[in-house]
């Protein structure tokens, strides 16, 4: 197989890479670009650990080909904080103890960010269904939902 040349945008930066036609975006991120904050939990689109945002939409990067990123804009966990300043969701996840082992955390943060960009004031039910594609085995989701609610409040400018 011949490698494909891809030009794309990742976390706002222009990026070019070569990848195999059957190579997933997840493998490109992790193995070619060193962006290992995106995790692989299943490789079949069932766990959401590899969630990334592609042109504003949450995707499982294990179900996207590296070649499909051509001309797109990709956001990963590495781009979520603005320099030294954490995104409110990142801060709230730490404050609410919304992570235990933390392997699912990058995927949850990416998915929750996309939720709050689309729906700044989600109900608990909306949060739970939006995040239903992200598996967490440690927390029982309680503290994750509370962290998202609290981050949403802060981002809307409301007092906690």
């Amino acid at each position: 197989m011949t490698a494909i040349a891809v030009s794309t945008t990742i976390n706002g930066d222009d990026v070019e890479y070569l990848c195999q036609p059957d190579e997933t975006l997840l493998d490109v991120l992790r193995n070619r670009l060193g962006l290992m904050g995106t995790k692989e939990g299943c490789g079949t689109g069932d766990c959401g650990a590899c969630s990334t945002i592609m042109d504003g939409r949450v995707v499982c990067s294990c179900l996207v080909l590296g070649a499909e990123a051509q001309g797109r804009s990709i956001e990963t966990i590495e781009g979520m904080a603005q320099g030294a300043e954490l995104h409110p969701l990142q801060r709230k996840f730490i404050e609410h103890a919304a992570l235990q082992c933390g392997i699912c955390t990058p995927g949850f943060l990416i998915a929750a960010k996309a939720l709050l960009e689309e729906k700044p004031d989600p109900t608990e039910e909306e949060i739970r269904f939006w995040l239903a594609g992200n598996l967490c085995r440690c927390t029982g989701y309680d503290k994750i939902v509370r962290a998202v609610q609290d981050a949403a409040r802060e981002m809307r400018g409301e007092a906690a």
Binding site: D46, E125, V145
Partner: peptide
């Protein structure tokens, strides 16, 4: 696999 061995997801549970 997690599709057919389904562990609880966020929308399955209450607080």
């Amino acid at each position: 696999g997690f599709l057919d061995y389904r562990i609880p997801v966020c929308s399955d549970l209450p607080m």
